[in-house]
Amino acid sequence: MDNRVVNKKKKPPRDWGAMFLWIVGGFIYLFLTLPILVIILSAFSPNPYPEFPPTSFSLTWFNEVFTSSEWLEALWTSILLVIIVTPITLILGTTAAYAIARLDFPGKQALQALMMSPLMIPHVVLGIALLYQATSMGWIGTINGLVIAHLVIAFPYVIRTVSVSVSNLDPALEAASMNLGAGPVRTFFKVTVPLIKPGIMAGAVFAAVTSFGEISISAFVSSPNWVTVPVRIFNYVDQTFDPAINAVSVIFILLSVGAMIIIERTIGLTKVF
């Protein structure tokens, strides 16, 4: 019984494997954040090139962006697209995701694959396909090509988020509603839509963020009158180096962080990604 008094605390042997894993993993996450850190570092520096460590703080580049008519025009085009594209994809995506979850028919999987395909098809191919269509339709010089491109590319994201919500929805609730005498239309608007609202909200955020950042297809279908912010960046970077792009990029990063917060609050990041 006396050995109970000897309560010496011992250190467990070091877990080198776990330490190694954390070091390697830490570097990988650092590598992932590196571009974003560098952008932020450069955007608030008065010099055209990044400095490490930073020596001074300045909003020069933000000022330049918000006084340049070219950047402001691009910003307006991008915002206009978000305003047009988000509600349309939401309506299309929500109705489709819900209906397909409730239907069973041969070729359902093929249709689902088709709906998600814009995420997988090489964007350069999607780009010329839509460019050629826009040309054939005589849409040169209009915003139509951009609208269609952004609808196509944002659509699968809404499908995905709404599907998550629909699969969490107990079909018994709809059955109960219809049992109480409500028709399918009434049930859809009074029961289903309110219950899948988180998925719809997250879908809206996705659609907006995707539209705002889309570049691969936009670069094909944009026209000199209608240039989005990413296309503007692309054209600039391709030709010259403009440090104001750092400031524009910070806006993108802020938007994506904001989007993340909304998605986390609505259906949770882990569910969509």
């Binding site: 996450y29 992932l32 954040t33 590196l34 571009p35 974003i36 560098v38 952008i39 450069s42 090139y49 990044p50 963020v209 705002f212 950042g213 889309e214 570049i215 691969s216 990413p230 960046i233 692309f234 970077v237 180096f241 792009i245 750092n246 524009v248 990029s249 993108f252 990063i253 938007l255 994506s256 962080v257 989007a259 993340m260 990041l269 990604f273």
Partner: peptide, 21 residues
């Protein structure tokens, strides 16, 4: 957050950042 930020950030912005680096 570190993982998802690049996913939601435009490809052109990330590419530009690599030029800066």
């Amino acid at each position: 957050i570190i993982l998802i930020t690049p996913l939601l950030t435009s490809m052109v912005v990330l590419s530009f950042a690599w030029i800066v680096i």
